[in-house]
Amino acid sequence: MDRLLTPPVGVALILALSSCSGESASSASDPAPTATVTTTVTASPGDASESPQHSMVAKLGDVQPTEWGDVAVLEFNPQVTSDPAAQRSVDQPRWAGALARTCVNEDWDGEPIMLSWGPWSLTDQDDGTYLETGISGGVSYPQPAYPQLGDRTTRPGSCSQGWIVFSAAPGATIAEVAYEGQGLDAPLVWSLD
């Protein structure tokens, strides 16, 4: 967007020109000559030096771009029933799940993209944060499962889609799903409203 600014130099130039006549402004019969200096400043939306990085909040199903690919949260289930015995064993009677899809278009800074549940989180309406369950063995999670432990490298041109399961407090109303993966200046956020 173009903006018109009058810098202090322009004001000083006007004052200098008006005082060149040798008469004070109140005693001059003719108006003093004036000059106006303007500067046009153009700000580009992608210039990080002029604007802070903010999280973009998307809706379920929206694809959000990164430097290395695209990420989307396709579905959310506030009450995942996968393995009741495992849920009781961690003293957390409620699990919630997000179906995520990540597509890799290129490596990030020459490094392959490693996918896992770790960069994902949920936030409730009271700003409570919930992380993935942290249980990796002996549990039947909803299928397909998103790569869980960071042991899967996703090569350029491929995608991974699956469920991520989170421990959530009973009665909490989950408001957002967030992803803070490789190379992001701010988290990608999907609203559940």
Rank of each mutant, 00 (worst) to 15 (best):
Y130L: 01
S29E: 14
D185V: 04
P187L: 01
L99W: 04
V63R: 03
P31N: 11
Q125F: 06
A169H: 13
G138S: 10
A35T: 11
Q125C: 07
I14S: 11
C159S: 05
I113M: 03
P93C: 05
N105W: 05
C159K: 03
L192C: 00
E106K: 15
D107K: 10
L188R: 00
Q182H: 07
A32V: 07
Q148H: 10
F166I: 00
E111K: 14
M1K: 14
R3F: 13
T173E: 12
A12R: 12
L99D: 03
S26C: 09
E67S: 06
V165S: 01
L99Q: 10
A48I: 07
D47L: 11
V80A: 15
P8E: 11
P112N: 05
S29F: 13
L5D: 12
Q143V: 12
P8T: 14
L99C: 07
E132H: 15
E180Q: 14
C103M: 05
A145T: 15
C103G: 04
G61S: 04
D185L: 11
S158Q: 10
D62R: 06
I174E: 04
A28M: 08
V104G: 04
G61K: 00
N77E: 10
G157E: 00
S27R: 01
S191Y: 08
D47T: 15
V71H: 02
V71T: 01
R3H: 13
S21M: 09
S26D: 12
T81R: 12
E176K: 13
G97T: 00
D70P: 04
V57Y: 08
R152A: 07
M1V: 11
A178L: 12
S158A: 01
T153C: 07
V41D: 08
A145K: 09
L4F: 14
P170E: 08
D126L: 09
L184W: 01
P142V: 02
E75G: 05
D127L: 08
A86R: 02
S158R: 02
D124T: 13
Y146F: 15
A98Q: 05
F166M: 00
L188P: 00
P31C: 06
V189S: 02
S19A: 12
